[in-house]
Design a protein around this nucleic acid. Sequence first.
DNA 1: ATATGTGCAAATTTTTTGCACGTAA
DNA 2: TTACGTGCAAAAAATTTGCACATAT
Lengths: 159, 159
Amino acid sequence: MKKSTVMNTLKKRIREHKYKFTTQRQIILQAFLSSKENHLSAEDIYEMVRGENPDIGLATVYRSLELFTSLDLVKKLDFGDGRSRYELNDHNLSHSHHHLICLGCGRVIEFTSDFAEEIRSRIKKKNGFNIVDYQLKFYGYCKDCQKQHPEYSEKEPQI
Amino acid sequence: MKKSTVMNTLKKRIREHKYKFTTQRQIILQAFLSSKENHLSAEDIYEMVRGENPDIGLATVYRSLELFTSLDLVKKLDFGDGRSRYELNDHNLSHSHHHLICLGCGRVIEFTSDFAEEIRSRIKKKNGFNIVDYQLKFYGYCKDCQKQHPEYSEKEPQI
DNA sequence: ATATGTGCAAATTTTTTGCACGTAA
DNA sequence: TTACGTGCAAAAAATTTGCACATAT
């Protein structure tokens, strides 16, 4: 889909909820759209955005990310590196995507799967819990790290 | 299993790796074993542990948790409340347990499932990624919150 | 016009670190 | 005995907040 179309959708979502579509909010969303890396920290976004608007404050970035998260435009993630990371929430994806986190080099690889519906109804029955979203993270070793450290290919008992 | 047996296993694991089994480390592990709540923050543990040993420092709690996590005795979790939470890693559980996080009241419910092995081999084939561990979090609404807010029972499109 | 949002600086909260002293093995 | 661990206080890092000013609707 075209980026400008995505931006219009985001704009619409923000306005639907009676929030203002400010320059700052637009620039921050733009940063997500133009970034090659899609797991951005508040600081990352702050740095990217300063090029476009040097006066923007880090607090605004945090406040925007909080708003976007509450509107479900963005997902807040934690890869265990001490800061939160954010990614655009792609509602068009029919299969949710998840993260493979390499314990060797720290790289985060995306991966799609659609086991959700099945588990969803199972849980609804068992716990009465109504699932709206989920996050799945895998920890392990990527191909490259396994090549460099053959012991990383062993099947560990923990799982 | 008896708690004293569990403690002995933990002690053994720590010593196997040439770390000392100090009073502080024991008290902290004891806190996990005796706590009713099993998702503890560093601060929670600090408070619990001060009863037993008032001189213990918060830094020691953090350092111990880091060590325990690296030895896989403990898992570090993030429920999005701004602080890390830790739980004893129960290797005896053949089916891993996961978390249902209620967006209404914040309650965290545990839930077991064993879909892992299946996904594990699928990923190994597809990405060459060797999975050692994984974390699965579900967000939604618990029974009680659905009772109070019928709209929480609606099936949301995001998943 | 005005409710909502922003920038700035300060405050808060969580986690980490340096160093002199203590202790398990 | 001695390498490893701890307490304390200070630092660092991440996030939040208060307030006067700015702006989208």
